[in-house]
Amino acid sequence: MIEYLIDGPLWHLSLAVFGIGVVWKLGSIVFASRRQDLSVARAAAGPAAFKTVFSRFIPHKEISSQIVIPLVAGYMFHLGLFALLFFAVPHVSFLEQNLLGFGWTPMPHWAFIVSAQLAFLGLIILWLRRMTNPVSRLISTLDDHVVAILTFVVMLTGCFALLEGATALRLLHRFTVELWLIYFPFSALMHTFTFIPSRAFTGAWFGRRGIDA
């Protein structure tokens, strides 16, 4: 019964909430009305917006020494998680069978292990940094902590189910993934998509004034 619910209706519900939620939230940001920019246009905003989306992947050198830990741990975590999500053998099979109908070559086993280590260590260090750095701690909301811990739980349940033998462990992982998908559009996890309009807006705003932000 539980297996049917988790593999069936709850999965479809979580996909629906995720899909509709992300589109709605992104749309509400992108199509929000903005006050007219009355400054003198010294340069083109468009190309600057596009450029800023990518240039922000490397921090400005004025602050880079202060944010070494979130930078390194951040990349460890995000790259590791991306590799796990889209190139781990069980995930590639899952996406092929349940969602897309086509698959691709997954990564070899040693790469999976390395990605998992990076992702776990990165997330632990990132969350601890949020707790220890006084500024981060002050500006962090409950949502920020929930997001970190929920993502950690999803990864942990995935780790538990690695033997791919016990159905209960696989269902537990699937269930936490569904919770994560449902929580996604209402949380800080939306940064997955909103970083693009956010950086683009900043780039456009300053680029129009001829400043390389």
């Binding site: 292990i113 998992a116 280590q117 776990f120 260590l121 632990i124 942990l156 780790c159 538990f160 189910a161 690695l162 033997l163 033998g165 016990a166 209960a168 462990l169």
Partner: peptide
């Protein structure tokens, strides 16, 4: 057996950490 399997996988993966 579920606990043990989960523990073994978790233990092996967290070791290098």
């Amino acid at each position: 057996a579920l606990f043990a399997s989960a523990s073994k996988e978790g233990h092996n993966l967290f070791g290098p950490l």
